[in-house]
Amino acid sequence: MGKINVLFFIYQMGGGGAARTLLNIMNNLDRERFSVTLVTLNFEGSYEGEVEEDIRFIKLETKRLSRSIFSLARIIKQENIDLVFSTIPRVNTIAIVANRLSFSKAKNVVREADNLGGSFVVNLQLLGFGAVYKLAHQIVSLSEGVKENLVRRYKIRGSRIQVIYNPVDLQRISDKMDHGIMEPKHKELFHTDDKVIITAGRLVPQKDQRTLLQAFAKVNEQTKSKLVLLGEGPLKEELQQEAARLEVADRVHFLGFQSNPYVYFKHADVFVLSSIHEGFSHVIAEALATGTPVVSTNCKSGPEEVLDKGKYGFLCEVGDVDEMASKIQHVLTLSPEQRASLIERGLERVQDFDAKQIVKQYETLFLHTLKRS
């Protein structure tokens, strides 16, 4: 029996969690059984350099999803693809339609990565995505909370959804911590008696860094601290203005996207996630893997599952400045023994998300999907 041809489709291999998840799955698939093709739109992505050399990487000539359908369908047919894997609602929709138009034997596996919903218009869109998802051969949810949302808002039967947590490439994180080099101009931020609070993520409303800035200002009144933000996004200037309004601009540092955030995480005293919603929250699992204590909002739906209701880190309500500040302050004032215990528990927890273990679940899922008529 020949190798199974799996095509991964995403709009770009950018700096987000979806691209990182695809990277971890693709790079760790058993090459004795699977041959891998990656297809993206015509964008430059920050993770492209980390795609394994034996993966066939095809960029379509368009930057618009709607114009990628026929090109993707042609690749599915010509490359004799057995299974098409995609993530993110609009990308999933295009992947399903393209596969149908390819008139091939290929089957679709779509992954839902976030806890979406809210307004009437958004909920109506999700019903539309759900209608298309029902044409897929398998649906993957990256947490129990996201599965519940798929059932409630997308109107998909729970029996059609399998929960598989995000794969965290622990070996890669360890290598990057051990051999990664921080930019010289950034080193002095960490060589200090001040406490260092760090976060990472796009500077967008979903991540709610405004609440984090306000909580940081309160923490800094009690404990001399610095706040380091890794990530780019449209809210950067607005957040800088907020830091100035709070009179902490000189203690807040926007370092932009870093391809190796782990070397930064490991030198921080606490990692904070302030999101309004998440699917799994890959980044807090990665922070645990670097031995950095975590404070996170208890947003729908990932952090509570990753931190097991607070067993492996601290949870606070979304948008609650005072509670976030209190939890951060608590971590910063732990005794050495308490801090060591918290770190040890976090390192144990993240083993549950090790890419080698999670990717085996994906391999099993792919094989079962292909056996269905």
Rank of each mutant, 00 (worst) to 15 (best):
Q12V: 15
A19E: 13
A19C: 07
A19F: 05
N27G: 11
R31Y: 08
L38Q: 01
F43H: 10
E44P: 04
G45T: 02
E50W: 04
I58E: 07
I58F: 08
L60F: 04
L60H: 03
K63W: 00
L65I: 09
S68I: 06
I69H: 00
L72E: 01
A73S: 09
R74L: 07
I81L: 02
I81G: 02
I88Y: 00
P89A: 05
R90V: 05
S102Q: 08
A106F: 02
K107P: 06
V109F: 02
D114S: 13
G117P: 07
N123T: 11
L126D: 05
A131T: 14
V132N: 03
Y133F: 15
Y133C: 14
Y133P: 06
H137Y: 06
I139D: 04
V146C: 11
K147R: 15
L150C: 11
L150E: 05
G158K: 12
Q162M: 14
V163H: 07
Y165P: 10
K176Y: 09
G180S: 10
G180F: 06
P184G: 06
P184V: 04
L189V: 12
T192K: 13
D193R: 12
K195R: 14
I198G: 03
N220C: 02
S225H: 05
S225Y: 00
E238S: 10
Q240Y: 00
A244P: 01
A244C: 05
D250Q: 15
Q258S: 11
Y262L: 06
H267T: 15
F271L: 11
V272P: 02
V272T: 11
L273V: 12
I276Y: 06
I276E: 13
G291T: 13
T297H: 07
S301G: 14
G302M: 12
P303E: 11
E305P: 03
V306R: 01
V306T: 04
G310S: 12
Y312I: 11
V318W: 09
D320S: 14
V321Y: 04
D322R: 03
K327W: 00
Q329Y: 05
H330R: 12
H330T: 10
L334V: 10
L334Q: 06
R339T: 00
R339G: 01
E348P: 08
F353N: 01
Q357N: 10
Q361K: 15
E363D: 12
H368I: 09
L370P: 03
K371F: 06
